[in-house]
Nucleic acid binder design. Sequence first.
DNA 1: GGCTCATGTAAAAGCCGTTCACATGAGCTG
DNA 2: CAGCTCATGTGAACGGCTTTTACATGAGCC
Lengths: 237, 237
Amino acid sequence: MSWRKDQGRAERGYHHGNLKEALLQAALDLISKKGPAGFTFADAARMAGVSPAAPYRHFRDRDELIASIAQRGFEQFESLLTQAWDDGRPDTVTAFERVGKAYLAFAREEPAFYSAMFESGLPVDSNPTLMAASERAFAIIRAAAERLAALAPPGMPRPPAMMMALHIWSMSHGVASLFGRGDAARRKLPMSPEDLLEAEVLIYLRGLGFPTERRPGTAAADDKPAGEKAGPWGKPK
Amino acid sequence: MSWRKDQGRAERGYHHGNLKEALLQAALDLISKKGPAGFTFADAARMAGVSPAAPYRHFRDRDELIASIAQRGFEQFESLLTQAWDDGRPDTVTAFERVGKAYLAFAREEPAFYSAMFESGLPVDSNPTLMAASERAFAIIRAAAERLAALAPPGMPRPPAMMMALHIWSMSHGVASLFGRGDAARRKLPMSPEDLLEAEVLIYLRGLGFPTERRPGTAAADDKPAGEKAGPWGKPK
DNA sequence: GGCTCATGTAAAAGCCGTTCACATGAGCTG
DNA sequence: CAGCTCATGTGAACGGCTTTTACATGAGCC
């Protein structure tokens, strides 16, 4: 974890050589420790071993640093979701749930990114680059919803994919931001956030007429109308 | 809207007479304008026409003021939800949806309260009073879920009310915090947040086996298994 | 009328964000 | 290799914020 030139500015020469990266890294550390509000520009500079004015050579101001982090966050998020979706393999529903889990995993494992992206109070729509990155991430969910909608059982009105995508996103974000992170705003839960979200999505999909029995083997094509068997919340007692 | 002693400290005597209230009010104004991060203690003092040190006679620090606001927010929230739920009249499903709408309305019309409650980064669980107020608000949702669960169609496993409540809450919070407020983190939506949430909840309830045709007349007891007719997202084209 | 204590003030310390003039040295140019 | 240039870092300074401390005021009570 150490670069050629460590943070102890023991010897480092006048120039840092990697300051922009070091600042982003420091900011991530600080945000994950103290939230996006608690993070200070000066602290990041100190952690990188430079004067408080140095960061201004790389970021117009504090907000731009946070926006950069959000930007990277959306990129990693997109990549994670893409990987989780895996183009719908082995079957659409399974892949869809994997996306949900990936969403929560990201919120939990990268709280700094997540809060920079969604809780920093940045005007996302005022920054086109950021907006675009966020759209690209959402596009994964949207594409998945599209595929899911396409195999809606015949005989039922077909749900609009965009609406499904927004629904899934709001569920995921809701669970993540209310119950997702280890210590903030916690509440006693009868189940893990992951299980909570999985059940929520399964019930929702069943409401759209999708077959949602647990462990459907590995079949990619399935079309039984709706739920008998155990519900998505485990065995009925 | 003016108290005996206006903010212009023209004459006001040494003592304000109502400072605590004035500070809370000023903070609400400021938070709704600039978000909980942009709000400053000194600004509130200025707006109330007192010195920057005066607030410390009423609040241990800035965080305690924000916590007070969150506290009041939860109280108003509870009262609003109680009113919307109206003990399940005229029928459980209708009342349930009214609760969802009330949730969004609160987030939209009281953004200052809402963000103090959910987005201020306060450690809710470290403040027992605040925690209790938040529990009381959630209890409304929980009670509604309980009633709803009780009339789950026979022959299906009965969903745990607590889980339902958490699901509904996460949907509401997800929609509210992603799409709810007028200008922050906005995104182009094909429908209003209210309609989005209503459809989401209806689909979810249908997934639990509840009858969810639109406008079921006024009957309080209804029990047709699940959806034919139009879906919750309007007429299928 | 006089006491007392909650409430407000002034001043100061320490931190932060931000700017500006200036220093440094990495990399190009000849 | 000498010298120039410009990106990058420094130090000092400004104004603002939070919080503390010693002091001022006057409302309410005896």
